Computed example of a mutant assay.
Amino acid sequence: MANSKAGTSINNTLGGEYQVFLNFRGPDTRRGFTSCLYHALVDAGICVFVDDEELRPGEKISSNLLQAIDNSKLYIPIFSTNYASSHWCLRELAKMVENTSKSKEDGNKKVILPVFYDVKPDDVQLKTLLYCDAILNLEQKMANQKMKLSSKDVETWRQALREVDGTKGWELEKYPG
């Protein structure tokens, strides 16, 4: 799906800024909603970052990925049923929230536009068990795999979810197909 001409691959060597960074749980939405959104944005001439499938579980977030988040102006997290079971999704979201907070201070405004795909804002706000349980299961899974995860990381993820839910987003179930 990565297209270096459009500036969308992790391996982008063009050094240009992205206009949009898509954050999503691949198995939930990659081949459906996210793919359609990505192509619609690219067809409209928008430079979109979407991860290619080079990142593997257990690898560190590459400096290219962090740079793509830093260089993007608009973030679109696509919250889906299994989103909170991915430490990658949560780490990216925390970085996006951090960047939007910093951008308010330095005048280089960045915006998060959340999409709620088969979830409700209350799930993301951690008011239901869906994301709460997913994060607890993720903590346990990572501990079982002896992957380093601090309670500070987990609290940062929870705070990022709460903050982004305070932003008006799109609940796809309100827009019948």
Score class of each variant (00 low, 15 high):
M1R: 07
M1D: 07
M1W: 04
A2D: 12
A2S: 13
A2R: 05
N3Q: 04
S4H: 09
G7P: 06
G7W: 08
N12I: 12
N12W: 11
L14K: 12
G15S: 05
G15E: 03
G16C: 11
Y18Q: 13
V20C: 00
V20M: 00
F21V: 03
D28T: 02
R30N: 11
R30Y: 06
R31L: 06
F33P: 15
C36M: 05
L37I: 12
L37P: 15
L37H: 13
Y38P: 15
H39W: 11
A40Q: 14
V42H: 13
A44P: 04
G45H: 04
I46M: 11
D51N: 04
D52N: 03
E54P: 14
L55E: 14
L55H: 08
R56F: 14
R56H: 14
R56V: 13
S62P: 14
S62D: 13
S63W: 04
L65R: 01
L66K: 00
I69Q: 00
D70I: 12
N71R: 05
N71K: 09
Y75F: 01
F79D: 08
S80Y: 03
T81S: 03
T81L: 09
N82K: 06
A84L: 10
A84M: 08
H87S: 08
H87Y: 14
R91A: 05
E92R: 02
E92C: 01
L93N: 00
L93G: 00
A94Y: 13
K95E: 13
N99R: 01
N99F: 03
T100W: 02
K102H: 14
S103W: 11
K104Q: 15
N108S: 08
N108M: 03
V111I: 04
V115I: 04
V115R: 01
Y117F: 08
D118I: 04
D118Y: 07
V119W: 02
P121S: 08
D122Y: 06
D122N: 12
D122A: 06
D123L: 03
V124S: 09
Q125G: 07
Q125T: 04
L126R: 03
T128A: 11
L130M: 06
D133C: 07
A134R: 12
A134Y: 06
L138I: 05
E139A: 02
E139L: 09
E139K: 02
Q140S: 14
Q140F: 13
K141V: 10
M142F: 13
A143P: 15
A143I: 14
A143V: 15
N144L: 11
Q145V: 10
K146S: 08
S150E: 07
S150M: 10
S151A: 12
K152N: 11
K152Q: 13
D153H: 05
D153T: 13
E155Y: 10
W157N: 02
A160P: 10
A160W: 06
R162I: 03
D165T: 04
D165K: 09
G166T: 09
T167H: 01
T167M: 00
G169T: 08
G169D: 12
G169H: 05
K174M: 09
P176A: 07
